[in-house]
Write a protein that binds this DNA or RNA. Structure first.
Lengths: 253, 253
DNA sequence: ATTTGACATTGACGTAGCGTCAACGTTTCT
DNA sequence: AGAAACGTTGACGCTACGTCAATGTCAAAT
């Protein structure tokens, strides 16, 4: 039998057969005078066995270990391992499909949005035009949104809801404007302390609680992100938030 | 933000970030005077979005197509496609686990066998010692065994059962010996025709039916394999089987 | 002032299991 | 005899990065 016949017989490509030769899975058969490989029945048997194991999902390395004979691994052990692996894969895929279903349900409502439905609703109601700081704020929200699960997003949406009343929106606009104006100011500018105080008054209670809850570094990192992200704000703006958190903490006590 | 901070923030490696740059998934940010990449908040947002899609199982190519904006593909369409793909994967894995369970159950009974339990039982009962042709025969059985499903194997085991009686075994031994003896003979040796006739008498009825059922080439290839495998037999032995099939066919009519 | 350590840069190789040329020789059919 | 269909070895390509390697930059410890 030549390589093409063998391959057709077992249902693989000639490339596959030669690949198994190079890996040592299938021993090289005798060569004819012209250099062609000449296969016997036992090669077909072995190749078919290799394929059967491969189609079960064993890696070629594992197959090599199993078919190596005495000093190889026990087939049973490998199969059990494989079954456990497949079970894990099933779980992973099932979880993915669940998340996919959620995403698709969201997309049904908000077709062309890069963020979740909850956040999209908030962003729609929150002002953004004209303020550089508002843009940063939205970006931060979008960032935490991508990493959040449904529960967290619902909490945040709840927290942010008080900010969408007409009065809160007006005050929010003003505060964004004042933050923008601090762009070039120094951290000791008198407007800094005033703005921090006004911000403290503007924030919903729940939000203040959430911010101070994780303000000590031992907790999770959700609000620590705020620090990391402060790379993009000016010193004066950063000072506003330092004062703000300090005020909230004092108020808490 | 420098690349390490960005990577830690989103939870990927710096290598991954640079990889996305090279693929064009993530735009290259400004460089500092020292050549370091300087990231902004929006880069983190985009990177987090990419990761969310990647963790769902989208390929980076697909993510590129989705995030490409206007001329890209619709996210919804891609997600539906992905879901269908995951569903297929689930089916494949479930089928594998079923076959694995069968294999494991077999291994429970026949721990160190390379063939199925059914065939192992047959091979145990069938004689093999000393005959080259018997070895070939066993190899052929092993070959079709690897490709067979449970139903087919049960059928074959049933077909082969009549051969395991003491009298059949004795006749089988003799027939194997006579086949071996034909090794160097020509196809027109007088013993050829005689052996073909005796073989026809030896074969169980069901087996003869199975052999002739697929003797015309329009059918499946299970018995056509026999032809392919005849590479390993001598001309005289091949002639025996040609005559055998012809006799069985005539008898059938 | 220097050494160390932690960061950054680009470039290249390795991974699994083959598919797919390329460049060439052999067999077989017409 | 020419073409089609096989065989040979060798090499690159594919995914999504991990993992050096060789080198540069920056802050802190000596």
């Amino acid at each position: 039998m030549r390589i093409g016949e063998l391959a057709a017989l077992v249902g693989v490509s000639t490339r596959t057969v030669r690949h198994y030769h190079r890996l040592g899975l299938l021993p090289e058969p005798e060569r004819l005078h012209n250099g062609y490989r000449e296969y016997r029945l036992r090669d077909a048997v072995l190749l078919a066995r290799i394929r059967r194991l491969a189609e079960l999902g064993l890696s070629l390395d594992e197959i090599g270990a199993v078919t190596a004979g005495d000093r190889g691994r026990e087939l049973r052990e490998v199969l059990l391992e494989l079954d456990a692996d497949l079970a894990r894969q099933q779980e992973v895929i099932a979880a993915r499909r669940e998340r996919l279903a959620l995403l698709l349900a969201e997309a049904e409502v908000h077709p062309d949005s890069a963020v979740s439905a909850e956040l999209a609703a908030v962003l729609r109601d929150l002002p953004a035009e004209g303020s550089e700081f508002a843009r940063l704020d939205r970006e931060m929200l979008a960032l935490v949104d991508t990493a959040a699960d449904a529960r967290q997003r619902a909490e945040w949406a709840e927290m942010l809801k008080p900010l969408t009343t007409p009065e809160a929106l007006a005050r929010g606009h003003e505060l964004y404007r004042r933050l923008d104006e601090l762009g070039e100011a120094g951290p000791d500018d008198p407007r800094v302390a005033a703005l921090a105080a006004d911000l403290a008054g503007h924030l919903p209670e729940e939000m203040a609680a959430a911010m101070t809850a994780n303000a000590d570094p031992s907790e999770e990192r959700s609000w620590q992100w705020l620090e990391e992200l402060s790379v993009e704000v000016t010193p004066a703006q950063a000072e506003v938030f330092r004062l703000l958190v300090a005020a909230l903490l004092k108020e808490k006590k």
